[in-house]
Every structure is written in C-alpha cells, then in structure tokens.
C-alpha cells in the first residue's frame, strides 16, 4: 500500500511491560496464583484424586481426617477430596468455555452495533437491554430443564446469557474509535468494514474486553455452581455445585460435605475476580499514570 495510514494507538506496551504493571497489584498476583493452582488441579485431577469421585463405599459420613479420607466422605461413602479435585475440572471448563462464548458473541454484537450505528445499533441495543434485564439464573434454569444439563448445554446456555456487558463495552469503544484518524485512514485506502473491524479497531479495544472476560469467568463458575446446586449440573460429572446440592440434605449431620466444595467455589471465583481487577489496573492508562 502506497498510502501511509496513521498508526493506531497501542493498548499495552508489550508483554514484559504489561507484566511489570500487573505485578505491582499484589492482590492480582494472589488471584493469578489461585487461578494457576486451579488449572493445575483441573489438569492433573486423575493423578491427584485418591479415589474415583463416584465410587461409593461402606464408609459413609467419615469425618475429615479419617484414614484415607482427608476431607471425609459423604452419605454414600464417596471421597470429598476427590470430588473437590474433579469438580475443579468442571468449573474451569465451564468457566473458560462459557466466558469465551460470551466474549465472542459480545464482541460481534458490540462491534456491529458500534461500527454501523443507526437502526442496527438501536435494535441490537434493545436486545442487549432485554438480555440484561431477564434474570439470567431463572432463564438458564428453564433452558437447562428443557434441553438437558449436559456439559455442552451448560456452557452454551451460560455463554449465551452472559454477553451483554461485553457487547456494551465493545460498542462504546467502537463508537469512540470509529472516528479516529487511523480508522479514517483505513477507510481511505479502501479497507472493507470487516477488515477494519477485526484487524484495525478490535486489537485496540481488547484490553478492557479481556478484563471483562476474566470477570465473566468468575460469574460463569458461580452460575454453573448455582445450577448444580439446583440439581441441574451434568449428571455424569462431579461438580462443586452438585456436591453442595447433596450436602443440603445433611447440613446438620456432615458439615464437611458443605464446607469444602464451598471453599473451592469461593476461591476459584475470587481468583478470577482478583485477576480481573489486576488486569484492569495494569491496563487502564488513567490508573497507570498516577503511580
């Protein structure tokens, strides 16, 4: 191309510079540690778990510290620790995949809305508003009740119900960017809309999108656990929410059945929330300048 296009503003100053910024946020680093731990447990679950999480035994209601069952067993004699370890897999898969789905949908809708504006924008924003208003949990519950609660369904449902925030964010960023000189420049040299959207503007608005995505992971894990608690988890997988559903009937009798899966959920959600906050502070130029 002969014409020179004005340089786009760079969002993040390289991976190393970014890490330097992120490292300063101590809670963010702690969150990252929790997330990494969660990832390792999820990946190596078969090696780490002492038992098959579904295998029952006569040793029901064994309290924590019992021989062979550090975190005790449930009413069917299933090992709680093994359940917590395998549960990490479910939470992480659902969290990552659902947040990814939501981010992709959110980017698509937000980009189209913000780039084209006009009635397209009007319509898409009304739909976004609708999705923000409808109680996600109730809708997810019904969809899962109708269509089944397999892992894929859970991921799709949670993903499809979680995009509005990303869409709004991307839209507002696109509204701002579409009239900047570098975009005008791209138009002048004859670039077509999809190319401008994806290879010109999008890379510049990704930083806040990633922040929202990591918070979305936390929300997705929470939503999956809530559905599991309502008995709508994948019946073939041991999940933290499902364990708490079982524990509900034995709160008075076996406290360990509630305590440990709940701690696991809280830590996983906290980890992604902290990472999101840390990313936010590391990528927000306003916050960066002050320090």
């Amino acid at each position: 191309m002969g014409l020179s296009v004005p340089a786009a503003p760079t969002a993040v100053g390289g991976v190393r510079g970014f890490w330097r910024q992120f490292r300063r946020h101590r809670l963010g680093v702690a969150g990252l540690a929790a997330v990494v731990l969660l990832g390792l447990v999820a990946v190596f679950a078969p090696l780490l778990a002492p038992y098959d999480p579904f295998s029952t035994s006569r040793n029901a209601f064994a309290p924590p510290g019992s021989p062979g069952h550090i975190l005790g067993t449930d009413h069917l004699g299933r090992d709680v620790l093994s359940g917590v370890i395998w549960g990490a897999r479910v939470s992480l898969i659902v969290g990552l995949a659902a947040a990814f789905t939501a981010t992709v949908i959110g980017i698509a809708i937000g980009a189209v809305s913000g780039y084209f504006g006009g009635w397209v924008d009007e319509l898409l924003m009304r739909i976004t508003e609708l999705f923000q208003i409808i109680p996600r949990f109730v809708l997810a519950l019904i969809v899962v009740a109708f269509f089944g609660s397999g892992l894929t369904n859970l991921i799709l449902v949670i993903g499809i119900l979680s995009w509005p925030q990303t869409a709004r964010l991307v839209r507002s960023q696109f509204l701002r960017h579409r009239s900047l000189p570098y975009v005008d420049g791209a138009r002048v040299v004859g670039m077509r809309a999809p190319r401008i959207i994806f290879s010109e503007i999008l890379p510049n608005v990704m930083a806040p999108v990633i922040v929202v995505a990591s918070l979305d992971i936390a929300q997705a894990i929470l939503l999956e656990a809530s559905l599991g608690f309502f008995g709508l988890g994948d019946p073939n997988l041991r999940s933290w929410g499902g364990m708490l559903n079982t524990a509900q009937g034995f709160v008075q009798r076996a406290w360990w059945m509630s305590v440990f899966p709940g701690i696991a959920i809280s830590l996983a959600v906290l980890g992604f929330n902290l990472v999101g906050d840390g990313l936010n502070e590391a990528t927000d130029p306003r916050l960066r300048e002050g320090s």
Partner: peptide, 28 residues
Amino acid sequence: LAGYSIPEFWLGQILILVFAVGLGWLPA
C-alpha cells in the same frame, strides 16, 4: 472481595452450621 466471590447458597449453609446447628441461636 469475599462478598463478590462467596456464593450465597453456600453462605446460607455455613450460617446454618454456625448459628443453628453449632450455637443453636436461630432456627435452621
């Protein structure tokens, strides 16, 4: 941070454990 991360249904179970089962102050 805790409030953002702890699921309310689990918190409910813990409150039952502590205040109803453990201390017996309130109904479960």
